[in-house]
Design a protein around this nucleic acid. Structure first.
Length: 472
DNA sequence: CAGATTTTGGA
DNA sequence: CCAAAATCT
C-alpha cells in the first residue's frame, strides 16, 4: 500500500531501455514509488553525441518503453547532473538508481553525479546490467587487461556463469509522473526530412521486438550461424546489435536463452561474437582514449591521405567496387551493414584510400543504428591495424575476391546496387572487365550509371604497404 | 576475421 | 597442366 510518506526513488534510464533484467529498476521499485526518467544529455556527450540513425532508433525505443510504462516515462533534455539535482529536490527523492555505462564521458559524468548526490545526502547507486561481466573483472593472472581476444575469451569462459537475469518488477501504482517533464517529441529525435524510410522497413526498436528476435534465433537453433554469418545475402545473423546497444535486451538474457543449446557449435559461435562485445568494452574501459587515439602509437606516423573527394565517394557508395558500394548503401538506407561487409568497406577506406580510420568511424557513428563507442572504436582500430589484437597490416582485403567468396551469386550486391542487377555474375564483381556488348545489354554505362573503380587495387595496396613500412 | 606467390601433388 | 596447399608478407 502506497501512503503519503512512501519515498520516491529515481530510476534513470540510459542504455537499458527495458523492464526485464533491469536490476537498477528492481532496486528503485523495492522501497517505494519510482520516478522513471530519461535524459537526453547532448551537453556532456561532446563529440560522442548520438548520430542521426541512433536518434531515430532511440525515439522509437523510448516510445515503446513509455508505452510499456503506461505513458509515465518522464523526458528531459540537458545536463543530467543538473536535471537529477532539480528532480531530487522537487520530489524529495531519497535514492537514484541507474545501470552502468562505460563510455569514458559517461563514466566521468556519472562519477561526478554520484559524488554530488551523495554529498546532498541522497543515495546514488549504479548497477551492473549492460555486460556479462564488469570490464574490470576479466583480467590477466599477471594483472592488467587482455589485449588479445582469444585469451580474453578463454578467461571469460573459465569464469563462473554470468549472473542470471532478474524479472521485471511489479510497478502497478508505483510510477510517478512529473507534470513538468517534456514530451518525447520535444527531444527532437525524429528526422526533419524523411530519410528514414529504409530504417522503418528494416527495424522495429523496442524491448518486445528485441525479445522476439532472440526467441526467433533460439527457435531456429542458430542454424547456419557459424558459416552463414559471413554471407551478407543470407539471413543468418541475429540483428540484435542495436537492441543490445540500447539495452532493450541484456547480454545476460541472451546468455541464459542460449544455455540449453550451448554445446551446439552454432551457438558457441554466436556466444563468441557476444564476447567480442565484452572484449571491446574491456578495452574501452582500460583505454579511454581508444575512440580517438591510435592504440599502437607507431601508427601516429602513418601518412594518411584523407582526400575529401575520395571520402565522399566512399560514403556515398560510389567507389566502383560493387561489394564496398553495396555495403555503404546498405548503411545509408537501412542504418546497418552486414559485419563481413563492414570489415571489407573499412579496409578499403583505410588501406586502399589511406583515409584515417577515425573519419570512417565518424561516418559509421552517424549512420549506424547500432553505433556503439566500444565496438565501433575497437573494430575500426582492428581493421586499421592500429589496435590491440590487430589484423596484421599485410592483411588487406581485396573487395573483388571477397565479393566472389562471400556473395557468390551476387544477391547482396544486386539488392543494393540495382543499376548492376542485369549484369551477369561473371562480370558483376568487376564490371570493368565486361565486354562493351554485355554492358550495353545490361544497361550499364560505366562512368555514368555506375562508376569505374576509383583506384587500382594492386597499386593502392602496394602504396598502403609502403606507407606502413615507413612507420616501422 | 587475407593476399600474393611458390610449391606440391594429382590428373 | 591446374588447383589445392604451404609459405611468406
Amino acid at each position: 500500500m502506497i501512503t503519503e510518506s512512501t519515498a520516491t526513488h529515481i530510476h534513470w534510464f540510459r542504455q537499458d531501455l527495458r523492464l526485464e533484467d533491469n536490476p537498477s529498476l528492481v532496486a528503485a521499485a523495492r522501497a517505494g514509488r519510482v520516478l522513471p526518467v530519461y535524459i537526453l544529455d547532448d551537453e556532456n556527450a561532446g563529440n560522442f553525441r548520438m548520430g542521426g540513425a541512433s536518434r531515430w532508433w532511440l525515439r522509437r525505443s523510448l516510445s515503446a518503453l513509455n508505452a510499456s510504462l503506461g505513458g509515465t516515462l518522464n523526458f528531459y533534455r540537458g545536463d543530467a547532473g543538473e536535471i537529477l539535482d532539480e528532480l531530487c529536490q522537487r520530489f524529495g527523492v531519497q535514492e537514484v538508481h541507474w545501470t552502468r555505462c562505460y563510455e569514458p564521458w559517461r563514466i566521468a559524468r556519472d562519477t561526478a553525479i554520484k559524488k554530488a548526490l551523495t554529498a546532498a545526502g541522497i543515495s546514488a547507486r549504479s548497477h551492473a546490467g549492460a555486460l556479462l561481466f564488469e570490464p574490470w573483472s576479466i583480467s590477466k593472472n599477471s594483472g592488467g587487461y587482455y589485449q588479445i581476444f582469444s585469451p580474453f575469451y578463454k578467461k571469460l569462459r573459465a569464469q563462473d556463469a554470468p549472473d542470471e537475469p532478474v524479472s521485471k518488477p511489479a510497478l502497478d501504482g508505483l510510477l510517478v509522473e512529473d507534470p513538468q517533464a517534456l514530451a518525447l517529441d520535444a527531444l527532437e529525435l525524429a528526422p526533419r526530412v524523411a530519410w528514414d524510410t529504409g530504417l522503418c522497413a528494416r527495424w522495429e526498436p523496442g524491448e518486445a521486438s528485441a525479445l522476439d528476435r532472440l526467441a526467433a534465433m533460439v527457435d531456429a537453433q542458430f542454424e547456419d550461424y557459424a558459416e552463414g554469418r559471413d554471407f551478407p545475402a543470407r539471413d543468418s545473423v541475429s540483428r540484435l546489435s542495436p537492441h543490445l546497444h540500447f539495452g532493450e535486451v541484456s547480454p545476460r538474457q541472451i546468455w541464459q536463452a542460449t544455455e540449453p543449446l550451448e554445446a551446439d557449435p552454432q551457438v558457441e559461435a554466436f556466444r563468441r561474437q557476444l564476447c567480442w562485445r565484452e572484449f571491446s568494452y574491456s578495452l574501452l574501459f582500460h583505454v579511454p582514449e581508444l575512440p580517438t587515439e591510435n592504440f599502437r602509437k607507431s601508427f601516429d606516423a602513418f601518412a594518411w591521405k584523407n582526400d575529401p573527394t575520395q571520402l565522399a565517394r566512399w560514403q556515398q557508395g560510389r567507389t566502383g567496387f560493387p561489394l564496398v558500394d553495396a555495403g555503404m548503401r546498405e548503411l545509408w538506407e537501412t542504418g546497418t551493414m552486414h559485419n563481413r561487409v563492414r570489415m571489407i568497406a573499412a579496409s578499403f577506406l583505410v588501406k586502399n584510400l589511406q583515409i584515417d580510420w577515425r573519419l570512417g568511424a565518424a561516418w559509421f557513428w552517424d549512420c549506424l543504428v547500432d553505433a556503439d563507442l566500444a565496438n565501433n572504436s575497437a573494430s575500426w582500430q582492428w581493421v586499421a591495424g592500429s589496435g590491440t589484437d590487430a589484423a596484421p597490416y599485410f592483411r588487406i582485403f581485396n573487395p573483388t575476391s571477397q565479393a566472389k567468396k562471400y556473395d557468390p551469386d551476387g544477391r547482396y550486391i544486386r539488392r543494393f546496387i540495382p543499376e548492376l542487377k542485369s549484369l551477369p555474375n561473371k562480370y558483376l564483381f568487376n564490371p570493368c572487365s565486361a565486354p562493351e556488348s554485355v554492358l550495353e545489354a545490361a544497361n550499364v554505362r560505366l562512368g555514368k550509371t555506375y562508376p569505374r573503380p576509383m583506384v587500382d587495387l594492386k597499386q593502392s595496396r602496394q602504396q598502403a604497404l609502403d606507407a606502413y613500412q615507413l612507420t616501422r
